[in-house]
Amino acid sequence: MKFLIVDDKAAVRSTMVGILARLGFDDVTEAVDGSDAWFKLKAEFEGVKPETFDLVISDMEMPGMSGLDLLRAVRGDRNLKEIPFIMVTSINTKETILAIMKLGIKAYIIKPFTKESVAAKLVQAGFLKKNPDL
């Protein structure tokens, strides 16, 4: 399972990476904002095709290309439109929630997150089996 973590805060990214590692996901790539994520999802470099990710976990509020912009771009792309997406946020307006839901995501992770809340969302999104130990 290859995950792409998108957040402009290094501290949030490293916390998420730590949690995912303890949940057994250790193949994680980090992106520092929406456009970096887009680059990593999309860009061909010297003829080498980009990596394929199994899940994008993206922050919503980011400078430049936001999580919603990234989601919109992904859903509009022929090759990427089916990629599972989890949005990380803590506040949103009704309009953005509706917009995000229309584009389609697997789950929301609410900030601040814990190992438990991330695990619950990964179960919900079907990436993890429900484990009573968690």
Binding site: K2, V48, K49, P50, E51, D54, L80, E82, P84
Partner: peptide, 11 residues
């Protein structure tokens, strides 16, 4: 759903 795009390692 994901099997669609090829997955070269390296980038």
């Amino acid at each position: 759903a994901m099997a669609d795009p090829p997955s070269p390692a390296g980038l």
